[in-house]
């Protein structure tokens, strides 16, 4: 019987192969860079890594999207070298890093604006004030501010359908901090998704919808959505309602819904030439790539300042 020999010869061979495969554990940690964190910063980091890998084929850089908070957790556990963040590191996260003896520096690579949008057939909303947004999104609004006329009496007596970033995203942290005043405080009765595409789909198919997400997603879906200008009622920030645009985010008049894009580099990572080269490349390419992925680059002198700051961090890192 020919089938006789199959398992007899096959099994030891398989085991040998398994040993051989697990035996050649030979990592080249010098060229590896692990990046994880904010899904907001991901597009620009991805673009930079793609360009960098094209110029340096030996580089082994991976990018994950665990969210800003998830990224910092891994960062402080030293599971990653660079953390993408769409907000500055929180005090609790700073403590976490300090406890584990992880020192780091933050580097600003650009800006993002949050867009508040409604369905294109929405004829009544021409602008919103930060106060109105707060009344709409604060925890006390749940089950109480449920119709458009609750916001302004002249608006229709129709349900308002809310869409927003999921509670694990940096976008949610940022929106609640900027609008409600406390991070992570909002009503719970809205359609939440970590996936901005789901939000775009939801708002663009619902005439009574209102939602918020990154300006980049508005740019990519301009035709399906109507942008709402925001008035923070502080004349020093530009009087009246301001719509987000490259100009209004850069000159800070689209407050409070624009935010910095940051990358954090740990001290052990900063000692490695591969990481240094990568961060330099990042800041060099950020002005072009930020615009390409729909974010807002900083003025050139700010990039020079960040380069100098990182160079100082590197020279301090060496004992």
């Amino acid at each position: 019987m020919s089938v006789h020999t199959l398992p007899a010869r096959g099994l030891p061979l398989l085991l040998l192969l398994a040993l051989a495969l697990t035996g050649c554990v030979d990592a080249a940690p010098e060229t590896k860079i692990h990046i994880d964190g904010s899904s907001t910063v991901f597009p620009i980091t991805e673009a930079v890594v793609e360009e960098y890998a094209r110029a340096h084929p030996e580089a082994r850089i991976t990018v994950g999207v665990s969210g800003t908070g998830g990224g910092f957790r891994k960062f402080c556990r030293q599971e990653i070298d660079v953390a993408d963040a769409s907000r500055p590191i929180k005090e609790s996260e700073q403590r976490d890093c300090a406890q584990r003896g992880v020192r780091y520096t933050d580097i600003r690579v650009g800006y993002d604006g949050l867009a508040v949008v409604v369905h294109p057939a929405n004829t009544w909303v021409q602008s919103l004030t930060v106060q109105e947004l707060k009344r709409l999104w604060e925890p006390a609004a749940q089950h109480r501010v449920t119709r458009w006329k609750h916001l302004r009496p002249e608006w229709p007596d129709a349900e308002i359908h809310l869409f927003g970033a999921g509670t694990a995203s940096g976008t949610y942290d940022y929106f609640t901090q900027a609008i409600v005043g406390t991070a992570h405080a909002s009503r719970g009765d809205y359609t939440a998704s970590e996936d901005d595409n789901v939000l775009v789909q939801g708002i663009s198919t619902d005439r009574l919808a209102l939602g918020f997400f990154g300006y980049a997603y508005y740019e990519a879906n301009r035709a399906k959505l109507k942008l709402v200008p925001i008035d923070d009622e502080k004349p020093e920030n530009g009087a009246g309602p301001v719509a987000p645009s490259i100009e209004t985010v850069k000159n800070n008049s689209y407050a409070p819904l624009s935010r910095p894009l940051l990358v954090y580099v740990s001290r052990p990572a900063g000692r490695r030439p591969a990481v240094q080269a990568f961060v330099h490349f990042y800041l060099e390419q950020a002005p072009r790539l930020a615009r390409e992925v729909g974010y807002i680059p900083m003025p050139a002198e700010e990039y020079r300042r960040e380069q100098a700051k990182f160079a100082a961090f590197v020279s301090q890192s060496h004992p």
Binding site: L21, H34, T62, V65, S66
Partner: peptide, 17 residues
């Protein structure tokens, strides 16, 4: 388990991402 969103290289050994 955290398989990554962007990995621009193929694994060459079992401990690679």
């Amino acid at each position: 388990i955290g398989v990554l969103a962007y990995v621009p290289f193929a694994p060459s050994q079992p401990l690679d991402e």
